[in-house]
């Protein structure tokens, strides 16, 4: 060991290149934001916030938003938005609650039914988009209201109220609704699984390249032979599925489903994605960025309760954070475009 020469001279350019490589990554700005926000609340919130209870508090929130934010982020990278997730979540939880609770069918029928509703909503969104060519914002606002109305109408018609109870069995609770160590929702692990799956899809599989190309320029992507229509429908179905997954797991955790649950997910999921460095107009972003954006958002969302600050201030912080995040992300994107790995 002692006779090894210290690689000081040679390490220098390598470190410089690594630093430049880092600034080229879309999530660099998001990491800085995450560290800043965590430090802020750790200082104000004290040991309770940095302890296990504090972690559980924001991780549980992050897992639920995170599962929805992943496909919403993929859609945004491909140049589209999905507002309808806010209606898909309650539609899925009520489907599960009505099938397994009200009609007393086996739990798995309820769970599959809920997930199926999500896939169906996604399919309708995708088909409407490729058939009409209208902006996805408008289409998914439309489907959101449609699904919301149907959910409310059918629930009242079938169950006679706007909330349905479900006492799920042990197995279902173990898979979807248990609290590990009494406070960490099992959803956190599902989130990690989804992160791995979406990370593979976007960054490792060739389909990821199609998604980036689709967001960069739809017409060129189609001319290059990418099945853009199928890809769009598939992405919307993923979004519907993930939103439904959150809806189903909520009904298992809370033992009931409410018609109006899920509204907050619409903007929260978009904010997580944008804070994470995804370009709103498509073509740029990463899964790591979305995860970090989700964590940052959840820390602010929950961290306020650990400080003496009025919880309403939390919303102000989130609003400011969003603006700052978009500005720094723009800056880092400009850096990424201008930096070359080896200046000459």
């Amino acid at each position: 060991m002692s006779n090894e020469t210290l690689p000081t001279r040679t390490a220098r350019p390598g470190a410089g290149a690594a630093l430049m490589r880092l600034t080229r990554r879309p999530e660099t700005g998001a990491v800085i934001g995450l560290i800043a926000v965590y430090t802020f609340f750790a200082l104000l919130g004290g040991p309770v916030f940095t302890g296990p209870a504090g972690f559980a508090s924001w991780l549980n929130i992050a897992a639920e938003i995170g599962i929805v934010a992943l496909p919403v982020g993929l859609l945004m990278i491909s140049g589209e938005l999905d507002i309808s997730v806010g209606a898909t979540i309650p539609a899925a939880s009520l489907t599960t609650a009505i099938l397994a609770g009200h009609y007393d069918l086996p739990d798995y029928v309820g769970v599959l039914g809920g997930l199926g509703v999500g896939l169906m909503i996604g399919f309708v969104n995708g088909m409407l988009l490729i058939r009409t060519g209208l902006p996805s914002l408008i289409i998914t606002i439309g489907t959101m209201f449609g699904v919301m109305g149907l959910t409310l109408g059918l629930t009242v018609m079938i169950a006679g109220s706007t909330g349905v109870f479900l006492m799920s069995d042990v197995a279902t609770r173990f898979v979807l609704g248990q609290f590990i160590g009494g406070m960490f929702q099992v959803t956190i692990f599902w989130w990690l699984a989804f992160v791995a799956a979406f990370g593979f899809l976007l960054h490792v599989s060739p389909v990821g390249n199609w998604i980036f190309a689709l967001g960069g320029d739809r017409v060129s992507a189609r001319n290059a032979g990418i099945p853009t229509d199928k890809l769009t429908v598939a992405l919307y179905m993923m979004s519907g599925f993930c939103a439904a997954f959150v809806g189903v797991s909520q009904v298992v955790v809370y033992n009931s489903a409410q018609v109006l649950a899920g509204q907050s997910f619409i903007f929260n999921s978009i904010m997580c994605v944008v804070i994470g460095g995804v370009l709103l107009t498509g073509g740029f972003g990463s899964i790591v960025g979305i995860v970090i954006g989700t964590m940052t958002f959840s820390i602010v969302n929950q961290g306020v309760f650990f400080t003496g600050i009025d919880p309403n201030v939390g919303s102000v912080i989130i609003g400011a954070l969003l603006l700052v995040a978009v500005m720094t992300n723009d800056g880092f994107r400009a850096l990424a475009l201008n930096l070359t790995s080896k200046k000459k």
Binding site: N209, W210, F212, A213, G216, D217, S220, L279, G283
Partner: peptide
């Protein structure tokens, strides 16, 4: 037409 893609990725879009 894909300014935000890497050289390698944009070169092989679709193939």
């Amino acid at each position: 037409t894909f300014p935000l893609m890497s050289i390698g990725r944009s070169f092989f879009v679709g193939v």
